[in-house]
Design a protein around this nucleic acid. Sequence first.
DNA 1: CAAATAGTGTCTTTGAGACAATATGCC
DNA 2: GGCATATTGTCTCAAAGACACTATTTG
Lengths: 240, 240
Amino acid sequence: MADNDISAREDPDAYARLSVCVDIVLMGVRKGAPCALLLRRGVSPFAGHAALPGGFVGAQEALEDAAQRVLRDKAGLPDVRCEQLYTFGEVARDPRRRIVTVAWLALLAPAAIEAALEANPELLCATLDVPDSDGSGDIAVLDSAGARLPLAFDHEQILALALERLRGKLDYTAVGFDLLPPFFTLRQLQDVHEAIRGTTLNKPAFRRRMIDTGWIVPTGTRETGTSHRPAELYCFRGLS
Amino acid sequence: MADNDISAREDPDAYARLSVCVDIVLMGVRKGAPCALLLRRGVSPFAGHAALPGGFVGAQEALEDAAQRVLRDKAGLPDVRCEQLYTFGEVARDPRRRIVTVAWLALLAPAAIEAALEANPELLCATLDVPDSDGSGDIAVLDSAGARLPLAFDHEQILALALERLRGKLDYTAVGFDLLPPFFTLRQLQDVHEAIRGTTLNKPAFRRRMIDTGWIVPTGTRETGTSHRPAELYCFRGLS
DNA sequence: CAAATAGTGTCTTTGAGACAATATGCC
DNA sequence: GGCATATTGTCTCAAAGACACTATTTG
């Protein structure tokens, strides 16, 4: 409730106003590894560090609308689903002033990653390297040359949480399909799962499991341009 | 990232300040059903409706600290773990002014429920009735007489999400033990699981599964005061 | 001994991993 | 035909549901 007379009387800071922003983790799979789109900061604090695209929440703007606005304005992606990740509100997370940030997770298919990189040339695609696949929560954020990329604020923590969330949902929801083109082979689907989990999977078991979920439908067409037997193309069925 | 020069320039509302509060879902199991502690509002809007205990976040107060303060001041519970649930920020969720709320979930053992009800006589313990166990997200909040209890703001939605989260974590984490006394029988543990899930469970399978997790340790002592064979008491082992 | 619940043993089914065999398109 | 990968079949093992049996305490 937070705002009846009682709490206002009890709490001297009842009418404090805070800056609230949204930060978006734009995550995908590229070259067999999870990746995220970041912006390089030019100004202090954390000048030269990479940061999540974000923006302040307007006084008359819903949180999700703010997230969609950032997706549109900073990545040129008008229609990407995004899901709330966590809200970070440590007092000193920004050295200058108090800012609470609501972090969101958006999943990008390969084409969307390239579209965003083209729409905003300032975006860079960082690889998320996972030292251990035990979900320890520690990740390494690497630039395209494989060098460690320092992150601004608590954004490395946000990225780690995003990857952990994605892993947790991989087996129980249809999130994997947001990371693939509309038509894909079972091998591509398995590659995505393996990239996110950081482990290899058993091929027949994976195939059985995916087909048994009913999430995917064979299209009857096959991939082309291979130098070997082409695999059947599947598409996502769309429901839970 | 929400606060570099670029976003400040791009966003006219960059320096808007919002009211931020925390609302706590104090959840437990009572009489074989999930329940939550609520306060009855005396003032408009939603006078007479029940609401989650909450409070504003101070300008120099971390979100989790605000949640702990509410737990202490409104329920007399100084040391209860709580976990962030979701942040609600629709513009019109409060009819008077814009308030963003960060909802938290705290799990209470039976003794903690009674302690809170005693510490703050204004608290009432509402039963969460689950029409279907299919996780549809719809719940009925009932007072002690079994009558439907109207909830203020979007708090019914918050309660539904809390129950859904609890269900999701039940099988994969040790949350069930936070809802029980320090020493408990396997039947009590199963009752808690059945109450949260809204289904019945197979006794031998449940017993096997719980012992195999390594989460619980038999104490060698037995319950007393039964009119039949007393069950062995177990305690939670404490790690993941 | 009767009642009531605790606790155990066993059969069956299901689903996943391992491994290997077969199929098929391209050179 | 030979290569490389797709696709399928089968064996084994682990875990859960079903069901029935044994154990133990109170009255």
